[in-house]
Amino acid sequence: MMRLFYLKECSSTHDEIEKFLSNDTLDLQAVYTFNQTKGKGQYGNSWESGRDLNLAYSVAVPDELIKLPNHLFNFHTAEVLADFLAILTKQIAGIKWPNDIVINNKKVSGILIEKKIIKGRSYFLIGIGLNVLNENFTHLPKAGSLLTQTGVKFNLESLTQSLHEYLVENLTKPVSEESVMEKLNERLFRKDLISVFEIGQSRQNGIIKKVDKDGFLWVELENDGLRKFFHKEIALLY
Rank of each mutant, 00 (worst) to 15 (best):
residue 205 N to F: 04
residue 184 L to C: 04
residue 168 V to T: 09
residue 148 T to S: 06
residue 190 R to V: 02
residue 204 Q to E: 13
residue 149 Q to F: 04
residue 113 I to L: 09
residue 172 T to Y: 07
residue 106 K to F: 14
residue 195 S to F: 02
residue 196 V to D: 08
residue 200 G to F: 07
residue 110 G to C: 14
residue 140 L to I: 13
residue 197 F to A: 06
residue 235 A to D: 05
residue 222 E to P: 00
residue 188 L to E: 02
residue 187 R to M: 02
residue 152 V to D: 04
residue 182 E to F: 08
residue 177 E to C: 07
residue 202 S to N: 08
residue 209 K to F: 09
residue 230 F to N: 08
residue 133 L to P: 10
residue 216 F to V: 08
residue 106 K to T: 02
residue 146 L to R: 02
residue 222 E to A: 03
residue 142 K to L: 07
residue 161 Q to L: 15
residue 236 L to V: 03
residue 219 V to S: 01
residue 122 S to M: 06
residue 110 G to V: 12
residue 109 S to G: 15
residue 168 V to Y: 10
residue 216 F to E: 03
residue 111 I to A: 00
residue 222 E to Y: 03
residue 218 W to K: 11
residue 229 F to S: 10
residue 235 A to E: 12
residue 104 N to S: 15
residue 104 N to M: 01
residue 125 L to W: 11
residue 155 N to L: 07
residue 174 P to D: 05
residue 126 I to M: 07
residue 139 H to V: 14
residue 106 K to V: 09
residue 153 K to E: 12
residue 182 E to C: 11
residue 183 K to V: 12
residue 154 F to S: 06
residue 181 M to E: 05
residue 165 E to S: 14
residue 229 F to R: 12
residue 107 K to R: 06
residue 114 E to H: 10
residue 155 N to P: 01
residue 104 N to A: 12
residue 165 E to A: 14
residue 201 Q to G: 07
residue 197 F to C: 00
residue 173 K to I: 04
residue 202 S to D: 09
residue 195 S to G: 11
residue 176 S to M: 10
residue 220 E to I: 04
residue 223 N to S: 13
